[in-house]
Computed example of a mutant assay.
Amino acid sequence: MSKAPVLDLLLHELALVAPGGFAVGLHIRYVSPLIMVNTYPESWQEVYTAKLYGLRDPTLAWGLSHSGTRRWSQIGLPDPFGILPEAAGYGLVYGMIASIGPMSSRTIAGAARADREFTDDEMSHVHRIVQRMHDLSEPPARLSRAQADALKCIAEGDRHAAAAARLGISESAFKARLTSARQKLMARTTAEAVQRAKEYGLI
């Protein structure tokens, strides 16, 4: 069974406790997350990206060097570029960070609201949600031979019919292998599954 619907439910639960939006990077490895979801205002996302704030964000720096939760107002790290005051202008006035997992596969989530600080209970709730997402999205240690072979065919440019012929199976069987590979890698498309399989050294 695919884990994606469960992950979607957890993202919805996170959205309910973070009315100002949230950003979560699951299993960050070599700076790139396995899954990234960002619901902050698009205008803020554009500014954040254009100004390379990901390299300067004190909340992200805290998340990379600590585990647990912390309010943005209590991080205690310098913000020489004024990222947090600028974010407040986009409705991200109060926020928190949750950081989970080892440095080799860290999950970091930020959540915001415009009206007040997050309570301790809300922060604990966010932490539990993010922990469940982190556990649910743990990358697989390996693919089955059938899954790996199917993804390799796609990676090498074969279309479904050609790939099925190459593997000596029916086209429907080939599609079933791709579907199982996507589910195992928590990918929504075959292209995404191929990319993730490559990143994790599975093909």
Results as ranks from 00 to 15, higher is better:
residue 187 A to F: 08
residue 190 T to R: 04
residue 29 R to H: 13
residue 132 R to C: 04
residue 36 M to R: 14
residue 79 D to G: 02
residue 53 Y to N: 06
residue 162 A to E: 15
residue 27 H to R: 07
residue 81 F to D: 15
residue 105 S to T: 08
residue 34 L to D: 05
residue 152 K to C: 11
residue 43 S to R: 12
residue 151 L to S: 01
residue 176 A to G: 08
residue 169 I to A: 06
residue 115 D to R: 10
residue 113 R to H: 06
residue 42 E to F: 07
residue 202 L to N: 02
residue 13 E to N: 08
residue 66 H to S: 11
residue 41 P to D: 10
residue 47 V to E: 15
residue 146 A to T: 13
residue 40 Y to V: 11
residue 29 R to Y: 12
residue 178 L to E: 01
residue 76 G to R: 09
residue 173 A to I: 08
residue 89 G to A: 05
residue 179 T to N: 12
residue 76 G to M: 11
residue 92 L to C: 04
residue 197 A to E: 02
residue 172 S to R: 15
residue 40 Y to T: 15
residue 24 V to A: 03
residue 182 R to H: 03
residue 51 K to H: 13
residue 142 R to G: 06
residue 126 V to H: 02
residue 166 R to E: 11
residue 123 M to E: 10
residue 167 L to T: 06
residue 53 Y to K: 01
residue 159 R to A: 12
residue 77 L to W: 13
residue 44 W to G: 01
residue 30 Y to K: 15
residue 158 D to N: 09
residue 39 T to Y: 03
residue 20 G to I: 07
residue 152 K to P: 00
residue 48 Y to Q: 05
residue 127 H to F: 10
residue 3 K to W: 01
residue 191 A to S: 14
residue 190 T to P: 01
residue 180 S to R: 15
residue 184 K to D: 05
residue 99 S to F: 13
residue 124 S to D: 14
residue 32 S to C: 11
residue 43 S to T: 13
residue 35 I to G: 03
residue 80 P to S: 08
residue 100 I to M: 10
residue 78 P to W: 07
residue 153 C to K: 01
residue 181 A to H: 01
residue 127 H to A: 14
residue 155 A to V: 02
residue 146 A to D: 14
residue 41 P to I: 03
residue 202 L to H: 05
residue 176 A to I: 10
residue 95 G to H: 00
residue 193 A to T: 04
residue 75 I to L: 12
residue 202 L to S: 03
residue 203 I to P: 00
residue 140 P to A: 12
residue 76 G to K: 08
residue 109 A to Y: 07
residue 57 D to L: 03
residue 83 I to S: 00
residue 112 A to T: 11
residue 116 R to H: 13
residue 132 R to G: 02
residue 130 V to W: 06
residue 112 A to N: 09
residue 121 D to N: 10
residue 104 S to G: 10
residue 42 E to M: 10
residue 174 F to V: 07
